[in-house]
Simulated assay, not measured.
Amino acid sequence: MYAGFASTDATSAATTANRDATDAEKDAASANKAANDATTDAKSADASATQAEKDATAAEKASANADTAARDADASADRAEVEERREIEEQRKNAMSAGDTGVVGEGFDTSGLNASDEEILRGECGQQCVEDYRSAQAAVAATIVDWLKANSADILLEVIGVNNVKRCAGEGDIESCLWAVVDIATLLTVVGKLPRVAAAIATVVSGIHKFFEAAEWGKRTLTWLRAIIEKARKVGHKLPVCLTKGLVAQNRILLSKSSMNSAQAAETPGLPCLKAITAGKNFKAHFLSKKALLEKVLGKKYPKWKDDEGMEFLSDLFELVRSGRLKYDGLGTIKVGHDAALIFRGEGLTLVLRIDGEFWTLLENGSGMADNIIMLP
C-alpha cells in the first residue's frame, strides 16, 4: 500500500515538474519575444530618429535655400529698380533736350479724339476711357513752362532762363544744378528776390517729378487707347461680358439691380455687364506681386510698370473672362465683413473683381486665401 502511495506521489511530482518546465519554457519564449520586440522597437526608434535628423537637415537646407533665394530676389529687385531709375532719368533728360514737354513726342499718336473715335472708346470701355484720353492729351501737351507757372515757380524763368531749368530738370541732383546757375550776388541786391527763388527751387525739387510722371502716363494711355480704337476698327465692336445665370454653377442668384450703378442696370437689368477690367486702388502693388501668376499661365512676360502700368495684364485677364477660361463662379467675399465681389475661377487661378469690374486681386488656387473665399447663396 505504501509503495502505491509513493508511486502516486512520484507521478504527481513528475507531472508538476513537467508543468513547471512547460511554464518556464513559455516564460522564456515570452521573454525572448519581448526582447525581440524591444529590439525591433529600438531599431524603429533608431530609424525614426535617423529620419527625423534627415528631415531636420533637409528643412535647414530648404530654409537656407529659401533665404538665399529671397536675398537673390531682393538683390535682383534692387538692381532692377536702379536700372529703372537710370532709364527714367535718361528719358527725362532726352525730353528736355528735345523740347518743353515731359516726353519726347515720337512713337505715339497725339491726334485728337474725333466723334467716331469717341464713340468707339465709349463702346469698348466706357466713358472713363474717353475722359482718360482727353486727360492724357493734356498731360503730354503740357510744357515745363506751364508747370512752373501753375506752381508759382516761374520766377526761375526770369532768373536763370527756361533752358537752364530744362537742363537741371533732367539731372539726377536737380537742386545742386539749379543753385549752381543762380547768381546769388545779384539776387542779394534785390530785396525779397532770393527767398522767392529759394522757394521756387524747393518747389521744383519736390514736385517736378509729377510733371514728368503725368506726361509719361499720358503717353502710355494714348498708346493703349489708340490701340483699342484701331483694333475695334479692324475686328469690330466686342459686346460686353454679361454675367448670366447660365455662367454660374447651380444657378446661383446673381447681383440685384440695386447693387449696380445706373449704367449697368440700364444695359442689363439685374445682371452686371463688364466692358473691361479696370485698375483699382493699390493696383501697382497688386500688379507687381500677381503678374507672375498670369505669366505662368500664358507663357509670356509683362512689360515693366513704367511702360504700360499693367494695361496688358488687365486686358489679358478680361480676354480670359470673355473666352470662358476664367469662368464666373458667383458672388463671394474674401473675408467676413468684406464687400461682395465677383469670383472667377479657371486655369488654376481665382480672379476677384469688384462689382463694377475693378480689379481686386488674383490668387492661385490651393492657396489659403483662394480656398477661404466665402461664396454667397
Rank of each mutant, 00 (worst) to 15 (best):
A6C: 12
T8F: 10
A14V: 14
N18L: 13
A38L: 08
N65R: 08
A70L: 09
R71H: 08
S76L: 11
E83K: 12
E90G: 00
A95N: 03
G107S: 10
G107N: 13
D109N: 13
L113E: 00
L113Y: 01
D117K: 15
E118S: 08
R134W: 03
A136D: 07
Q137R: 14
Q137C: 06
A153E: 02
I160W: 02
G161M: 09
V165P: 00
A180P: 00
T189R: 11
V191M: 10
P195M: 00
V197P: 03
A199K: 15
A200G: 06
V205K: 12
V205D: 06
G207V: 04
H209N: 10
W224G: 03
A227I: 05
A232C: 11
K238W: 00
V241T: 01
G246H: 07
V248H: 05
I253T: 13
M260T: 03
N261A: 10
N261P: 01
P272K: 06
C273E: 03
A276P: 05
F283L: 08
A285N: 12
K291M: 06
K301W: 11
D307I: 09
G310H: 02
E312T: 11
S315K: 07
L320W: 02
R322V: 00
G330Y: 07
L331F: 05
K335D: 05
D339S: 11
I343M: 09
F344H: 05
L353R: 05
L363G: 01
N365Y: 00
G368P: 03
N372P: 05
I374L: 09
M375T: 05
M375R: 11
